[in-house]
Design a protein around this nucleic acid. Structure first.
Lengths: 229, 229
DNA sequence: TAAATAGTGTCTCTCAGACACTATGTC
DNA sequence: GACATAGTGTCTGAGAGACACTATTTA
């Protein structure tokens, strides 16, 4: 969506000591991702954690940026390799840059967030991954709790104003199904009528309704347009 | 305010090819900063630009991250060295990561924003810096227009809800002075009575008033607490 | 008919925008 | 007193929360 660029100087760049770009030590650049979902039958957000070699233990999935690679591609690669998850639109959250935060050396990490349908997490590596409620993430290394906190806040902000921006629901869906999802994301109950009045104008009615259920059939809706990003 | 941390693996980390951390090529990490201000007698935001060696021309101030350095310290160093400005609280905006965006090589840049009192820019290097209105930044390299755009949006969001969060105004100040500042930031006129009703509860009245002015003297206010960050 | 769920009318509260009024100083 | 600016009362419209009503289906 953007040409994504910014920088510094020219090909003849030298600093005040006459050193050129290649003379500087450079950090490793990592990505870490809070991959969130709502599990079937549960009413809260869960985060994917992966088991790293001792003594690290459970942590968020991450990887190092490869040469010539975009951050978003490194995120997708780490999630594909470590959880078998594809088709995401991760967003940047924050850069964590404490030079002493990683015992292996100087690592700058760009935290990301994404939300995915629970069934896309079926194929994840058993025993080496787990899904934990975001409000009880366990003790995580490298400040990964902070990433989860920022991720949850980011997702809640997005879900507060628009219907299922990350497309967790299969279409078509009822307003009830949509509201249950939003309540799981928000971590609290939402007003039934207020929720409908906020969301329905942002949806496309299908004219069709559910059938065979208790009570009055509910109209089925679809999203109006493609997801924003 | 936070311990700022996150990462990846352990000291014995090896990837699937058995390579260790030091075997990977690493990008240079840069910071670029949109340093904004409101110039005396003007009613809009301006951005600081610095002249870089040919063929780059005017661009935002930036530098490379030094070994063991925090991003915020690199930002402060670049602004001190290139504009003589100190005492800022830069915030991260976005990471620009296109591998081809810099002709010198592989550079990942973390964009920052900060706002500073105009008189702190007095001592900047004449001839090698300039202040330009944010809506006419000129043609900048490396997508620096995008940084300015994000920076302006960020600052406007902050100023929409709180009185002078970046402390551009000297205390004490009148509501009129505060409103003129906010109008310059917002780029549009603000309602006089609505503005007062939003901001006054967030300020500490001093009891004292202006004197010697035309019209009824205005009460002088101070901020209630220290800036948030 | 009873129960259950969908959908809507409407009251209230809050808040922004707008207008106009009152208050208090200088010229 | 005229004028200018500070500060406030109040009306209106939009929107969220809350409650209750109507609508439509199954058991």
């Amino acid at each position: 969506m953007r040409s994504d660029d910014t920088a510094n100087g020219t090909a003849e760049y030298r600093d005040s000591s006459g050193r050129t770009l290649a003379d500087y030590p450079r950090p490793s650049v990592a990505v870490d991702t809070a991959l969130l979902t709502v599990l079937p039958g549960e009413d809260h957000l869960s985060a994917l954690e992966v088991l790293r070699p001792e003594p690290t233990g459970w942590a968020l999935p991450g990887t190092f940026l490869h040469e010539g690679e975009r951050l978003i591609d490194a995120v997708r690669r780490s999630l594909r390799d470590k959880a078998g998850v594809e088709g995401m639109s991760p967003r940047q959250l924050h850069v964590f840059d404490d030079p002493k935060r990683d015992s292996r050396g100087w690592v700058v990490s760009v935290a990301h967030v994404d939300v995915v349908e629970a069934d896309k997490l079926e194929q994840r590596l058993a025993g080496r991954t787990r899904l934990v409620p975001v409000d009880q993430p366990g003790r995580l290394p490298y400040g990964h709790e902070q990433i989860i906190g920022r991720a949850v806040a980011d997702v809640r902000n997005r879900y507060a104003i628009a219907p299922d921006p990350d497309r967790l629901l299969d279409e078509p869906f009822t307003i009830l199904e949509l509201r249950k999802l939003h309540e799981s994301v928000a971590g609290r109950a939402l007003q039934r009528d207020t929720f409908r009045r906020l969301m329905e104008p942002q949806l496309a009615g299908s004219g069709r309704t559910t059938s065979g259920t208790r009570g009055r059939p509910a109209e089925l809706f679809r999203h109006r347009s493609a997801p924003i990003a």
